[in-house]
Simulated assay, not measured.
Amino acid sequence: MMSTAPSSAILRDIYAKMLLTRIVDDRVWRLYAQGYIDFVTSSHGHEAAQVGSAICIEVGKDFTLPYYRDQGVVLTIGMTPYEVFRTCLHSQRLQQKGQPGSTKMPIQHWGYQKHNTITSPVPVATQLLHAAGIAFASKLRKAAVVTVAYCGDDATNEPDFAESLNFAANHSLPIVFICEQDCTPFLAHDSFATSLPPSCMPRDALPAGMAYQRIDGTDVTAVYTAMCQAMLNAREGRGPTFLEMALARSQPTVLLPYSGDPSTMVQYAPPPSNAGKLFDPLVRCRHSLQEQGIWDDEWANQLSTRMMTEVERALQDALRDTLQSK
């Protein structure tokens, strides 16, 4: 895999996967609005960081350890919208029944064995230790396999975070760590418009031997380019990389009940900035496609209509199957 900006075909594919992630996220919010689930871990605003990195993973060969917000990651590497909805509904049922392993807040655990996706535990940052162990095993076996581990900025102050990075660096493991940093509070001061907000990394957190890059996580081209290089370095035995992706997360303001119309969408407010929509990953990706002269309104409309119809069907099937299995 070469370190390069995405081709026109790849960029359109990325846009389609980002749009799918947004539509699925909207439908998960509708499950919350209708009382089917009690808690939402939204990926809204994370689409570029998740899809732009996950599209570089060799599915079925590499190992992926997502964290609970990573709907875009699991959709990109092969989980279907139906499986995402069933996961959300199943997490809610476990919490309601008080089964062992359930939590007060039923977060998603994105295990997917056939695609080497490892279920994340509830404690923050412990999946990073598991990822380091998998990468160590891959190195011992001399397999050209990369392990990719995701986390949020709340993980960076945990002891497991430092232990994972130190172990990976000390053994020069084939692993890529990705931290999705929510920088929404900084948008009120428009600091994102001129430079990236301050890093969430603790002082002296990065050990020697760990490559590091801080990226605008709303720019899918920057994410893809950095991830290609990190994956290439890991696969060729040049050690681990830590990618810190600054992004802007927005929240729904109006939760619309289902009206029978597949085009019904959850309504979102832009981040608190005069240039708020510029930080929306889908808007930025569309601008990139337009600048390259490869945006087509008819294609985009057909893509949106088809995806909304397919996702709506998947949602109704997941609700039916969940209710029948009670």
Rank of each mutant, 00 (worst) to 15 (best):
K17A: 10
G78F: 05
R27D: 12
H90Y: 13
G78W: 06
H115W: 02
Q34R: 11
Q34Y: 00
W110S: 03
Q50F: 06
I55W: 00
G133Q: 13
Q92Y: 04
F39P: 01
R141K: 15
Y36H: 15
M105A: 08
T87A: 14
E83P: 00
T87V: 03
I55G: 01
T103I: 00
D25H: 05
Q108T: 11
K61F: 01
A137N: 14
G35Q: 09
A132T: 15
A132L: 09
H109D: 00
T64A: 15
V124H: 07
H44F: 10
F85G: 02
H109G: 00
T103Y: 11
R141G: 04
A48C: 07
Q92K: 09
V73G: 02
T64Q: 01
P100W: 10
Q99W: 12
Y36K: 14
I55D: 00
Y68D: 01
V124P: 10
E47S: 03
V24G: 03
L75K: 06
D26L: 01
G101M: 11
K139G: 06
R27L: 11
A137I: 12
P81N: 07
I118V: 15
T103Q: 15
F63V: 12
Q99Y: 11
G98H: 10
E58S: 09
G78N: 06
F85D: 06
D26Y: 05
R30D: 01
V40G: 05
H115E: 14
D62L: 07
H115C: 14
W110T: 04
D38I: 02
P81L: 07
Y112I: 04
T117H: 01
R27F: 14
N116D: 08
F136P: 02
V28P: 02
L129N: 14
G60Q: 05
K97C: 09
I107T: 12
L89G: 07
A16D: 14
I37M: 05
A54D: 04
L75E: 07
S102T: 11
D70S: 05
A125I: 10
L89F: 11
E58D: 12
T117L: 08
G72D: 08
P123I: 12
P123W: 15
Y15C: 02
L129H: 07
S138L: 01
V74P: 00
H46C: 02
I37Y: 09
C56W: 02
S91M: 14
W110F: 15
T117D: 01
Y32P: 03
C88A: 13
Q99C: 06
